[in-house]
Computed example of a mutant assay.
Amino acid sequence: MSRPWAEGTTGAFKRQVSSFREVVSPTHPIYKPAKNRYWLYVSLACPWAHRTMITRALKGLSSVIGLTVVHWHLDDKGWRMLPAPAEITDDDKKNFHTFHGGIKPTEEDVSHPVGDVKNDSARLWIDSTFDPNNGFERLSELYHKSQPDYSARYTVPVLWDTETKTIVNNESADIIRILNSGVFDEVAGDEATHLDLVPKELEAQIDEFNSWVYDNINNGVYKAGFSESAAVYEKEVTNIFNHLDKVEKILEEKYDVLAGKHGKDNKDKILKEYFTIGHQLTEADVRLYTTIVRFDPVYLQHFKCNFTSIRGGYPFIHLWLQNLYWNYKEFRFTTNFDHCKLHYTRSHTRINPLGITPFGPKPAIIPL
């Protein structure tokens, strides 16, 4: 594959800026909230897309916004989807409106071999789903339908408007704010949870936390993994673990406060308030989770982020991760370790030219 991540000759990673940045709002001249009008195109492997899936699930919007999952293997033409079946059944239609878009999550307590799975595997509802809106088989077709002269990379997630046949937004940070804003609550009816992931009194803290977590951890693993210079890699990987240390300290202090409040043996009550910001689940947890849940299964070996593992070196981050995964189905059912491991190890041929997918860790996530 080419080097879409390299910046000039420095060997440093530079992330592409998203091109489509519209919002959905009752006051928007075009994009107004409606049931079944908007559709998400995601990759289960991609942490940026994963945060939109979690937010959609937490907000109770699965029946309002459908979900198409692209194939885990990213080839030189970009993301692809499987062809639509000759007949779309009622079960197919229901699958698009589950937490996981019809692709069931990997079994939680088992790490099983995937070495015999081929890159061109075409197992519907396992490797990928299809596009029921346009019949497209490439994500690039969505981009060119929206903007015929589009020439940048074709990225996920995509929030698509089925009415105007155009991309509303392809920036994950925007999309999760749109989903959280409450604009879909009325059309979601009784299924809307009315959960606010960015409460006003915590917004400044969430934004500040997100800012350094994004640059140094979410994007940091890519800066380390896609480095094409030893000096750049060593600088970036050190930076990641310095900031993981910072998160660990925040969560350790949070745990101590909660243990003092509820008693150190009252773990259930502690975990109900054990989050990064405040004492409730927020967007900060969602955005950090999608990197941390991939850390031991992928980034540790594939991106050489190997000072230590989360499970072995960060007990408070690890407990926070286990709490979200095991106690919140919206996190667990949108996490697919097979897609994560297969995507990175098979798609990044410069990093892993033999395409061998590691068998471990076993288990992918340790039971709480």
Rank of each mutant, 00 (worst) to 15 (best):
L142A: 10
N216C: 04
T129H: 03
R3Y: 05
Y214H: 15
M81L: 15
R56A: 01
R287G: 06
K264A: 10
H194C: 04
K59E: 01
D174N: 12
K93R: 15
T334W: 05
N327G: 05
H194D: 07
V257E: 15
E208S: 15
R350G: 07
A231M: 12
V247W: 01
K59T: 00
H28I: 08
H28F: 06
S151N: 14
P315K: 11
I317C: 10
L271C: 07
T52W: 04
K269V: 10
L179P: 02
D265I: 09
R177E: 13
D90L: 12
D265G: 11
A6Q: 15
I351L: 14
S151D: 11
N323I: 02
W326N: 09
T308M: 13
T55K: 06
E107K: 12
E201I: 08
P29C: 09
G115L: 10
F13T: 11
D149F: 07
F184I: 07
H112Q: 12
N242F: 00
I178K: 05
A34W: 01
T166S: 14
D296Y: 00
L197M: 02
M53G: 05
A284V: 04
V156P: 01
Y154W: 07
T308A: 12
I310N: 10
Y344M: 04
H28M: 05
L342P: 02
F130E: 08
T291F: 00
Y222I: 06
A122D: 15
E191H: 06
W39K: 13
E87M: 09
H50M: 07
K272A: 09
I88A: 01
Q16K: 14
V257D: 12
S146C: 08
K35S: 12
F20E: 01
A6T: 12
W39V: 13
H28G: 11
E22W: 00
A284M: 04
A6G: 07
V114G: 03
T349K: 15
K269S: 15
V247E: 04
P33F: 04
A259V: 05
E137S: 12
F96L: 08
I277F: 04
E163C: 01
H194G: 00
E201G: 02
H112V: 08
Y314H: 06
G260I: 09
R332T: 02
T335Q: 11
G135F: 07
W125K: 13
F337S: 05
R3D: 12
D296F: 00
I365L: 11
L159T: 06
F241P: 04
F307S: 15
P26E: 03
L321C: 11
Y154H: 14
S62D: 14
P297K: 13
S140E: 12
R56C: 01
K35M: 04
N134R: 14
P358Q: 03
L67Y: 01
I270T: 05
Y38A: 10
L202G: 03
F331M: 09
K304C: 02
G278V: 11
E163Y: 03
D91L: 13
N327K: 15
T238G: 13
N242Y: 02
I65V: 13
P297F: 05
T68I: 08
R350A: 06
I365M: 06
